[in-house]
Design a protein around this nucleic acid. Structure first.
Lengths: 231, 231
DNA sequence: CGCGTTTTGGTCATCCCGACTCTAAGTGTT
DNA sequence: AACACTTAGAGTCGGGATGACCAAAACGCG
């Protein structure tokens, strides 16, 4: 073992996504909780939740723990995004941040105690953040939007069972465009990852939609040999 | 600034790919240079080239520098792969490794001084490596194979100009299957990223093929907002 | 019962892709 | 000079995915 005293601090940060109705349009959109910095550098600026990695926890554990401590959230999905390590990204010293991105269900998102130091922002309307966090959020948004089309991450926003309209609403919110209901149905049905249940949802003033759930026996290979980020 | 003495060592490692004829088939295939460990843990085992990050260099700079020092290689392409940070991945202490993957041209690959401590291995026939490096290589291979289809990374194995057969040979080597020449041509032509030159290659005992080059004015969005890894 | 809603099933044209055929244009051989 | 051989390059054909669109089904509501 060579050098354990490099003078480089190792941090984890997380870009957290939740679905909420947009202020103006009323449609579902992506929201991100940010924390206000209470110390220099960038004091009073909004920033991604994050903290230092302790020697006895893995990176993903550190991200999950920090998330719970600073925002009270336990995400349904958590995946590594990128390691940011430019020399001057923090004015206060050398910091390498391993950034994760997370998805939380709407009910879980309520637990993020909004206050002076935690606030939700619409993902497409962020203020100027601390450090290089605007770039990080941009990258997380890009990754999320490219991945929602070939992966099953939308499930992280939904409950055990859901209607195709629910699933479609998630896709529409992430992709920021409306999708044809019939074509969307055909596509997800042909993918074979969904199984219909016997139940339907009655009460709406229209034909009652069927409830679906994901086929758990199908394993994804989203991350190749690394498909084991979180159970 | 909180904790700069976490007791966590930060390292970079790189999975380097080059094309060489396979020993048995004679077809082009992916090869990887590995270095022999000369100290515990895993002494005498083969491992990915890597080293510690110094405080005054970025992660990608550290990867490039270490690559040059340990193998003598300057890659044509270098991209971050993943940050590995399990607590017990090194028996000698807590090490977080930010891993990169790199592509080198055939002529450049010759400069990797093969000796007792550096040796090239066929990517699909590796020995048992030190640490979690087998998993890392598997992931790098998966990423490379998925990315070659929608990106222009194949150019990193080629010169300024090349024939469609050259380009197809790269794809075939990476994907490990033969591609129909006519269909391959149609696909890359319709992508619009290639421009034909006036030159052709004569000398072969067949119709002389045209030389192409990449259209530099087209920018890729392979990595979304992060498309700036290396010029 | 008719109306408005969303669900759900279907058609149709288009594009992409793999398999395949055919011609073009060189080199080497006779 | 004629021919064989090889790869380059153009074109054809059918299947599958996709977007735009249409229509019937099944509810609540007045």
């Amino acid at each position: 073992m060579a050098d354990a005293q490099q003078g480089i601090s190792l941090a984890v940060s997380t870009v957290i996504f939740a679905l909420r109705p947009h202020a103006e349009t009323g449609l579902s959109a992506l929201w991100i909780p940010l924390v206000r910095r209470i110390a220099e550098p960038f004091e009073n600026r909004w920033a991604l939740p994050g903290g230092w990695v302790s020697p006895d926890e893995s990176l993903v554990d550190a991200a999950a723990r920090d998330l719970l401590e600073t925002t009270g959230l336990e995400p349904a999905y958590l995946e590594q995004l990128y390691a940011f390590g430019d020399v001057h990204r923090s004015p206060a010293g050398r910091v390498v941040s391993v950034v994760y991105w997370a998805l939380v269900r709407p009910d879980e998102a309520e637990r993020a105690t909004e206050g002076d130091n935690v606030r939700w922002f619409a993902a497409d309307d962020l203020p100027e953040l601390a450090f290089d966090h605007n770039l990080i959020v941009d990258y997380a948004l890009w990754r999320m939007r490219t991945k929602v089309e070939y992966s099953r991450i939308a499930r992280a926003f939904l409950g055990e069972t859901f209607t195709l309209a629910d699933l479609r609403e998630v896709h529409e919110a992430v992709l920021q465009r409306s999708l044809d209901p019939a074509n969307f149905r055909r596509q997800v049905e042909s993918s074979g990852t969904l199984v219909p249940t016997d139940a339907v949802v009655s009460g709406g003033r229209h034909r009652p939609p069927r409830l679906y759930r994901y086929d758990e026996t199908i394993e994804l290979v989203d991350n190749g040999p690394l498909s084991k980020d979180r159970p």
